Amino acid sequence: MNESRDYLELTFRSVSCFGNDGRLDAEELGELIAIAERDGKFDANETRVLKRIIDRIRPDEIDAAMKARLAELTQKLGSA
């Protein structure tokens, strides 16, 4: 069985998202989550990368939309 390489795309895309304006918004986070969900599950590498991405989000970047996305992702990662 081949190992998923979605985590590599997640890493690359997150660099692009943070790089374009220095922050990550809810829409960009949603796009990253969609990459990880393509195969229907979060593997260990995807989980690791997503958690590192979340760690880079500054408190002043969290608006209502981002808070909702983070809550959704936290729930999904908890059940992964």
Rank of each mutant, 00 (worst) to 15 (best):
R13K: 14
G30L: 06
K67I: 00
I35V: 13
P59E: 03
D60P: 00
G22E: 11
D43H: 08
I53K: 04
D25I: 04
A71D: 15
D55M: 10
N20I: 07
K76P: 03
G40Q: 06
L73H: 04
Q75G: 13
K41F: 15
I33L: 13
A71L: 15
D25K: 01
D25W: 01
S16Q: 13
E72S: 12
L70R: 03
A26K: 03
C17I: 06
D60T: 11
G19N: 05
K76V: 08
L10V: 02
Y7G: 02
E37A: 11
I33W: 00
Y7M: 04
F42Q: 00
N20F: 07
V15S: 11
V15Q: 07
D6F: 09
L32T: 01
D21K: 01
L70I: 14
I62H: 01
D21A: 04
P59Q: 05
E61T: 05
D55F: 10
A68C: 09
R5D: 13
E28L: 05
E37G: 07
A80T: 09
K67D: 15
G30E: 08
K51M: 12
R23S: 15
I54K: 06
R52A: 11
L77C: 11
F18Y: 11
G19V: 05
G30D: 06
A68H: 14
E3R: 12
E9Y: 11
R13F: 13
T47H: 06
A34F: 07
D60H: 13
L50K: 01
L10H: 00
A64K: 14
S4Y: 05
A65Q: 15
R5C: 10
P59T: 02
E28R: 00
E46Q: 10
Q75A: 13
R23T: 15
T47P: 00
T11L: 13
P59N: 05
I62K: 01
I35N: 02
D39H: 03
A68R: 14
F18C: 02
N2Y: 11
E27A: 10
A71E: 15
L10E: 00
F18D: 01
S79K: 10
L70K: 02
E27Q: 11
I53S: 02
S4L: 09
R56P: 03
F18M: 04
K51I: 08
L10S: 01
R48E: 13
R58Y: 05
D21S: 06
R56T: 14
A71G: 08
G30A: 09
A44K: 10
M1Q: 10
A64L: 13
L10I: 04
L29H: 02
Y7H: 11
A68P: 02
D39G: 02
L8W: 10
E9I: 11
E27W: 09
R48P: 03
R56N: 15
D6K: 07
L24D: 00
R5M: 12
A64R: 12
Q75R: 12
D63F: 03
G78T: 10
E3Y: 14
R13L: 14
L70A: 05
K51Y: 08
M66T: 03
L24M: 13
L50I: 09
T11N: 10
R23V: 15
P59W: 02
R52S: 12
L29T: 01
E61R: 06
R69S: 15
L70F: 05
E72Q: 11
